[in-house]
Design a protein around this nucleic acid. Sequence first.
DNA 1: TTATCATATGAATAATTGTTCATATGTTTA
DNA 2: TAAACATATGAACAATTATTCATATGATAA
Lengths: 122, 122
Amino acid sequence: MTSKYAPVESCNCEVIHEEVVNKVRKKMPKEETLYDLAELFKVFGDSTRIRILWALDEAEMCVCDIACLLNMTQSAISHQLRVLKQAKLVRSRKEGKVVYYSLDDEHVRMIFDQGLAHTSEK
Amino acid sequence: MTSKYAPVESCNCEVIHEEVVNKVRKKMPKEETLYDLAELFKVFGDSTRIRILWALDEAEMCVCDIACLLNMTQSAISHQLRVLKQAKLVRSRKEGKVVYYSLDDEHVRMIFDQGLAHTSEK
DNA sequence: TTATCATATGAATAATTGTTCATATGTTTA
DNA sequence: TAAACATATGAACAATTATTCATATGATAA
């Protein structure tokens, strides 16, 4: 999160290129829009969650399976699945004791691909 | 970062669907690849940086201008520009005292668009 | 030179966060 | 019923991080 600190009243320097600043200011989306966007990318910004998403893009899996695949505790995975579910990136389906998770968004793959395009080039 | 804790020796539950786990395991990318991907998205996961990237997608700007636009201190912006530069998402150009920053990646816009497609739908 | 200005940077701090541990919940099986 | 099992969850802790403040750097102007 960013608005952890008290809002700054103004930048502490002169505006050098006022026209540019005004032009860009007009085009900026609502604060909330960019905040939500950052919140979404924050969810992608953890390698455990990235690995879970990647795995679920291959197959629907239960919590146990994911924990085993990633060699992590069931608790850690469960906590992260919760985050992913709140972000509406995964959905779950219950069958007896077992809860199956799967991807709940068609954009995940696209986001991955664009990210990979960047990281593999640089 | 994720590997902050000692590696877990194994998940603490039985494998329920061994075939699925094995199938997915074979298809998983290298650990490092997914780690780098998470590191990239972490950079997008802060609203100050998202706003900077968005602004720079509209126009090349100097540090002062960005600080003014976002109503934040020059120092805070400078620190974040450093992060963005290390991630190779922005580049800089010096002209006298003034340093101009601009986007250094053609994928930024695409990543934004996919992210927005998600956040605006849900 | 000296003053001023734009930017960068190191240290400190407060807030956030991912995992662990213990335990709770809810389902199936004996 | 009780036991076993899969999953969820709350508290605690360690690690990370975004900003602030003070100051350094480097360029221009006086």
